[in-house]
């Protein structure tokens, strides 16, 4: 990928995935890795940070004699995601205005 993913954007992506459904570390990582270029150990610090700032919460579910820690979005997390989304749209529009008509290029 040519463009780099910044830390806030990664936070936003994680919140976006967790909002859709509760996930555990492995599936979350795989889902994000399918789309963007991150390593398998990138997301733990992100999850921990989001959890500590109260945007995500965790609960354990027994699975084959061990626990699986699921992450769930909290109301402040939803608010933050909402903010991230509006920021993304603003950013995207601004970049588009400099880049020119993106759709035109993909059509050619």
């Amino acid at each position: 990928m040519t463009y780099q993913l910044t830390a806030p954007l990664l936070d936003a992506c994680v919140l976006g995935v967790v909002e859709k459904e509760d996930v555990y570390g492995y599936t979350l990582t795989q889902r994000v890795m399918d789309v963007v270029d991150i390593s398998e150990s990138t997301l733990y610090p992100v999850l921990r940070r989001l959890q500590k700032s109260g945007l995500l919460e965790t609960y354990d579910v027994p699975y084959h004699g061990r626990n699986r820690r699921y992450y769930r979005i909290t109301p402040p997390g939803r608010e933050q995601l909402h903010y991230f989304r509006s920021e993304w749209i603003t950013y995207k529009d601004k970049i588009d205005s400099l880049l020119g008509d993106v759709k035109l290029i993909t059509a050619v």
Binding site: Y24, G25, Y26, Y44, R48, N67, R68, R69
Partner: peptide, 9 residues
């Protein structure tokens, strides 16, 4: 705990 679980997964 996270990595223990992750490795299992």
């Amino acid at each position: 705990e996270y990595y223990s679980e992750y490795i299992d997964d």
